[in-house]
């Protein structure tokens, strides 16, 4: 089912404590955020590149990211949340989460909320922010009708794998790849 052609992934830097006060302000992303979101999305895709040569980032990824984000912002099935920093980073986008609600034609629950990307700048990792983002995006997906939440990331990304396993996720679908070139 999670056969998305844009393999998502996640950089939250591992274990996060559930702090009551996370050093960010989370809000739905706007059109004006796109220039700030593109570099963060590309950082995440370049991180994915470290895990597998079949995740090599395209030369025009920059433009693709812009188009994709604009499309997401216009799509009622998509969710893009922007995390703003606090203190000197106020009004600066320091991370984001991107997700989409997909139909499951054969299974119940019928609606699946797929977390495609979570990215946080390094200074915001390991401070409970990733956990907070996960909670918030899960709630937003549920509000859009999703009965299950899934996350896509490169199979070799052990940091992401640990993050989700620790929070009650388990692997249900695998995508295996072989180059045809």
């Amino acid at each position: 089912m999670t056969a998305s052609n844009e393999s998502g992934a996640h950089a939250m830097g591992g274990a996060a404590s559930d702090g009551p006060s996370v050093p960010i302000h989370l809000r739905p992303a706007r059109e004006t955020d796109v220039p700030a979101l593109v570099p963060l999305l590309l950082r995440l895709k370049r991180l994915n590149e470290e895990f597998d040569p079949l995740l090599k980032v395209r030369d025009d990824a920059d433009e693709q990211a812009r188009l994709l984000l604009r499309g997401n912002l216009a799509d009622p099935k998509s969710i893009v949340l922007a995390a703003e920093g606090v203190g000197p980073d106020r009004d600066k986008v320091v991370g984001f989460v991107r997700a989409v609600v997909r139909e499951r034609p054969f299974y119940v629950p019928e609606q699946e909320g797929v977390i495609l990307d979570i990215y946080l700048l390094p200074l915001y990792r390991r401070r409970g922010v990733g956990e907070y983002l996960l909670r918030e995006v899960s709630a937003a997906l549920k509000a859009k009708g999703a009965g299950v939440v899934t996350a896509e990331f490169p199979a070799q990304n052990e940091i992401a794998s640990r993050f989700y396993l620790k929070r009650g996720f388990r692997p249900i679908t695998a995508i295996h790849a072989r180059s045809l070139l």
């Binding site: 830097g13 470290e50 700048l121 390094p122």
Partner: peptide, 21 residues
């Protein structure tokens, strides 16, 4: 902390990554 290669360092040189933070 926001240098472009930070994620690469996180995976391959966590010692340098931590000092960068």
């Amino acid at each position: 902390a926001e240098r472009e290669d930070m994620d690469e360092l996180m995976l391959h040189n966590p010692w340098k990554y931590r000092l960068a933070l």
